[in-house]
């Protein structure tokens, strides 16, 4: 993607009918490390790979709890994700305060989309530089949504965002028919396998860089990290992951996370 004369502000159309700034924001999501979401009839699961700037640093967290029934995985600008997740938390609390009702997942996702849209139409502004996978459980069951900087949002059976997310999507497309009836453990396993497909050749999922979260009926939103993942990773190591689709050329990770 190259600079051109129609990308200096968000509110300027290109003659081809494109908003280049929005498309750049979508690129920012692709620079973030991968996050995968999938759901069954009873649970929704997120898995993600965390990045670290080096051996001396901690890993950037990828999962954010919104409420007991909802959480997100992020890819892109972490600081933008913090703004959005704070907004989601405020709305979740407001719903509890006013109606004593856990905030319906679809509603907050629409509200998020409205916020993102505003940033694609105002001069001098910039779109959010983060993509979210939102999972949650409400009266209508478990849900998985993707929120993107363009203001689009879709509900999915399974979805991946972030660097080389396409490889994960290939895995998900091949296996999604099994997800509906899968147990929570199997769902996490599928998620990790999809996530594994996004890794560079020399990288592995381990207790340091993997992050798992899930929610369901009678299951509060829970994040598993570190030693808690040992059994899942052991199972992952013992299965032969399907050959990943040819990964696109690696994009150099910028200061996105």
């Amino acid at each position: 993607m190259f600079r051109n004369q129609y990308d200096s502000d968000i509110s300027v159309w290109s003659p081809q009918g494109r908003l280049h700034q929005v498309e750049y924001a979508l690129e920012a999501v692709k620079q973030g490390s991968a996050a995968v979401g999938l759901r069954s009839k009873t649970h929704a699961v997120l898995v993600a790979v965390k990045r670290t700037p080096g051996d001396l640093a901690s890993y950037q967290k990828k999962m954010i709890r919104i409420d007991d029934h909802m959480g997100v995985a992020i890819a892109g600008l972490t600081s933008d994700a913090r703004v959005l997740s704070n907004y989601m938390r405020t709305e979740a609390m407001r719903s509890k305060m006013l109606y004593n009702r856990p905030l319906p997942i679809g509603r907050i996702v629409s509200a998020l989309a409205d916020k993102a849209q505003v940033n694609t139409q105002n001069y001098g502004g910039r779109p959010y530089g983060v993509g979210l996978l939102v999972i949650g459980q409400d009266e209508t069951g478990p849900h998985l949504f993707e929120c993107s900087p363009s203001g689009n949002n879709f509900e999915y059976y399974a979805m991946a965002i972030g660097a080389r997310g396409q490889s994960a999507k290939t895995y998900l497309e091949r296996h999604y028919e099994q997800f509906a009836e899968a147990s929570l453990e199997d769902l996490v396993h599928h998620g990790l396998q999809a996530l594994k497909a996004t890794l560079q050749q020399d990288k592995k999922l381990d207790t340091d860089n993997a992050s798992v979260a899930f929610v369901g009926e009678n299951q509060k939103f829970t994040v598993l990290e570190g030693e808690a993942l040992t059994s899942y990773l052991a199972r992952l190591g013992s299965t032969d992951a399907p050959a990943a689709a040819a990964a696109p050329a690696d994009v150099a990770p910028m200061e996105t996370e």
Binding site: R65, D67, D68, R89, A92, M93, K96, M97, K220
Partner: peptide, 17 residues
Amino acid sequence: KQLDQRIQESTGEWYRH
């Protein structure tokens, strides 16, 4: 209810967050 929103894990948020 007000205190709950400020503190704990099951419903309250700010302190825990």
